[in-house]
Design a protein around this nucleic acid. Structure first.
Lengths: 138, 138
DNA sequence: CACGGAATGTAGCCAATGCTACATATTAGG
DNA sequence: CCTAATATGTAGCATTGGCTACATTCCGTG
């Protein structure tokens, strides 16, 4: 069921980007067939994470938004960390995607503390430039 | 199929610890029924990662050992990293278990470089004591 | 308005990973 | 040596997450 979080995250993305989320867009972004999306949406609706009507837009419930938010936080932190230690951004993106589902609150906290520490040292912790962590070599 | 790596790792562990790996031990360690193990072993044998005969020990093939080794490397690095940034060891263990399957070679390399950097600063990077990463606060 | 293409839905198939229930093989003890 | 406990095996079921093929609905354009 960890894919659920990915779907919810993507639905939220599509809503901000396009104003609405449609099954076809989900299928295209996830690289799966529309049938896979259809069944996933049935499960998400059954579990109370989305509401939708056939041939209409998909909406997140409060529960769905919460899951999406939590997933995104983990995703962003993991991605920032990987980039900070020198993983190429495109690879960091792929790895973070897989790893985010296994991050406990404690680990999330520690990663964020780590990133905060780097920020205080004046290092960039996002993917917007090429600067990466260089530990002081004594 | 990412569970395959976990099974192979565990089989290797059992062989070093107990001299042999039996299905029952696998089931107990993984916390699943012996049926699940039986079917997993069938898949692993089909894919050329283990050899076994009914009611006998389980052996890794060269391919199986290679997968196990790679998984263990990622596991150890991820665990060391999590502990280094201050995640409690038991939680780090759980999270590393899930994350190790999503670590690309590039990310593994970067994590190891990061750990090497810490070691040069004289910080412990394993779980044998409580010392954790403290970034210099300027 | 009617029709065609795009969007969505359903049916039915497959593999992986889990389970319970039941059958069989092995091994250890009396 | 025989029996009981232990270890494995098989049958059959459920869920997730894929797919193709085919059916239906919606919408824009002529």
């Amino acid at each position: 069921m960890e894919l659920a979080a990915d779907y919810l995250e993507l639905i939220e993305d599509l809503i901000s980007e396009c104003g609405e989320a449609r099954a076809t867009d989900l299928a295209a972004r996830m690289g799966v067939s529309h049938v896979t999306i259809s069944k996933a949406l049935q499960r998400l609706a059954r579990d109370g994470f989305v509401t939708y009507r056939p041939y209409r837009s998909i909406f997140l419930t409060d529960a769905g938004r919460q899951i999406a938010k939590s997933a995104r936080e983990k995703h962003v932190s993991m991605l920032s960390f990987l980039v900070a230690i020198g993983v190429p951004p495109d690879i960091a993106e792929q790895d973070a995607e897989g790893m985010e589902h296994h991050i406990s609150p404690e680990t999330l906290h520690s990663i964020n503390e780590f990133l905060r520490g780097l920020a205080q040292l004046g290092l960039r912790t996002d993917a917007t430039n090429g600067e990466t962590l260089k530990l002081p070599q004594n």
